[in-house]
Design a binder for these strands. Structure first.
Length: 346
DNA sequence: GTTTATGATTCGAT
DNA sequence: ATCGAATCATAAAC
């Protein structure tokens, strides 16, 4: 049980480690019975502590300078840095070098694809180009919608770039400020260049999360704009009369098998100034609607059958078969193209 | 304003 | 991937 006093003593020693002088005083004075002298010592020490705050800035600066010029300073600094490196920072070091954020990459890719973050006006937006292609040559009317889209996109683009620049500038300013501060402090505190670099990284990461928010909201804005534009594209425009005639011509002259091949679709698309998928849509709609109500299309069918017959006759008089359909439904006849259930459309 | 026509989209089947 | 079918959404006709 004689361990107890020693333990207590040692614990006191630790507790006073920061003020060895004070501990010394207290220990010394426990031996003597002079309470007055002890009071006096404590008073002195308190006085000293209080006067520290009264030191002028110049005095502190001078002390700092003196400390800096001390011959042991570099060695001491290195040792402190090493200790610091080995303790706190090594723990944090393990979490660094995280892989590039997947979401950030996606946002970047999208912004690039939409022409928001890419080169200025150059090739224009890929989306706009695609949309223009999809809208087809059928309508010269959609040019206003298109320019509207482009105007809105460039507006978004402008806001994005100004904001991005602002953040970048703020980031740089802040980084410089912190670096200067740390460099200054590294004269009196163990701050290694590596640590400053680390701090800069942390700042950059913080700012990049802000930038990511900007990118996120920009992406949202583009998506909204795009969905609106897509909706606008959904606004149906009838094909022009000639295009419809070309399509009907093919349909009724291939009534037994109204399924144009890919090549035929391409040719029709070219002739009608529409896309291949529009041709496919048209045939899909036509087949189902014809099938649903053959009676309604009878007149139309007769008309195109007659026309085909006439053109076939014309062609035959010229001794050429170039324009002849591969599977003429009513070759040479005026008979109404009766639809039969054993044909492809059922 | 209602109805019809028509191009586009979606969904399940093949 | 392409088709039929149902459906949507809008243009055009009434």
């Amino acid at each position: 049980m004689d361990d107890q006093p020693r333990l207590m003593h040692s614990s006191h020693g630790v507790g006073m480690a920061g003020h060895p002088g004070l501990a010394q005083h207290m220990q010394d004075s426990t031996g003597g019975a002079d309470g007055e002298g002890r009071k006096q010592d404590i008073g002195d020490i308190l006085q000293q502590i209080m006067t520290i705050t009264d030191q002028s800035l110049d005095e502190a600066q001078a002390r700092k300078h003196a400390l800096n010029c001390h011959r042991m300073k570099p060695a001491l600094f290195n040792v402190l840095c090493e200790i610091k490196e080995k303790t706190v920072l090594s723990i944090r070091g393990a979490q660094e070098e995280e892989p590039p954020d997947a979401q950030l990459m996606r946002l970047d890719n999208m912004l690039l694809a939409e022409g928001v973050s890419g080169p200025e006006k150059g090739g224009g937006s890929a989306a706009a180009a695609a949309a223009a292609a999809a809208a087809g040559g059928g309508g010269s009317d959609n040019s206003t919608e298109h320019s509207d889209y482009r105007a809105k996109l460039s507006q978004i683009r402008q806001i994005y770039h100004t904001e991005l620049e602002k953040y970048e500038q703020a980031c740089n300013e802040f980084t410089t400020h912190v670096m200067n501060l740390l460099r200054e402090q590294s004269r009196t505190r163990p701050i290694s260049p590596k640590e400053i670099e680390r701090m800069v990284n942390i700042i950059h990461r913080k700012f990049s999360t802000i930038q990511m928010q900007l990118k996120q909201s920009t992406c949202e804005a583009v998506m909204i704009l795009r969905s609106r534009f897509l909706d606008a594209r959904r606004k149906r425009r009838n094909f022009n009369k000639q295009a419809t005639e070309f399509l009907n011509e093919y349909f009724y002259s291939h009534l037994s098998n109204p399924y144009p091949s890919e090549e035929a679709k391409e040719e029709l698309a070219k002739k009608c100034s529409i896309t291949v998928s529009q041709v496919s849509n048209w045939f899909g709609n036509k087949r189902i609607r014809y099938k649903k109500n053959i009676g309604k299309f009878q007149e139309e069918a007769n008309m195109y059958a007659a026309r085909t017959a006439v053109s076939a006759t014309n062609v035959s008089t010229h001794g050429s078969q170039a324009n002849s359909p591969s599977t003429p439904n009513s070759a040479g006849g005026y008979s109404s193209p009766c639809y039969q259930s054993d044909r492809r459309i059922q």
